[in-house]
Design a protein around this nucleic acid. Structure first.
Length: 139
DNA sequence: GCCAACGTTGGC
DNA sequence: GCCAACGTTGGC
């Protein structure tokens, strides 16, 4: 199964806000970038991703899971925009900051580092397990 | 708050 | 189809 990373500004939508939604989860609305949308189109049920705080925080803070496949974004004014639904799986025992990620040779090619503007991005298995280890997260 | 990087728009 | 102008994102 593929792994992903979702960015959010914590003052707009934080990880605790997603946790508060519980099993009902939340639509990942507002994505207005084709690359990001195309990544969401590839997602399968049950696939997991990191929840990343951009701008404020700049750290991976949680793990989420896709539980509804791509569908029209209810907040979009044109049909081109679609989204998946996510629910919280777990908060990371320790947040992993962008600074820490940049110090790791294994992670130097992460999309997060190389293309900082893409808001929904793939994460390799290697990157995933490395960050989980840094976070003290052992599923 | 600034600005680099990237994406989109629209005139030609 | 090119590219200049503009808008947005996000790290610093």
């Amino acid at each position: 199964m593929a792994k992903w990373l979702f960015k959010s500004e914590p003052d707009v939508f934080s990880f605790p806000m997603l946790q508060a939604k519980g099993k009902a989860g939340e639509e990942w609305t507002g994505i207005r970038n084709y690359q990001a949308r195309n990544n969401m189109r590839k997602m399968q049920l049950g696939e997991q991703g990191f929840f990343y705080y951009s701008n404020i925080g700049k750290a991976v803070v949680g793990v989420v899971e896709v539980f509804k496949l791509i569908h029209p974004d209810s907040t979009a004014d044109v049909p081109a925009w679609e989204c998946v639904d996510l629910r919280a799986v777990a908060e990371l025992p320790k947040a992993v900051t962008l600074d820490e990620i940049k110090l790791e040779a294994v992670l130097k090619n992460m999309v997060l580092v190389v293309n900082s503007r893409l808001s929904v991005q793939p994460v390799t298995d290697k990157e995933w397990s490395h960050i989980c280890r840094m976070a003290g997260y052992l599923p």
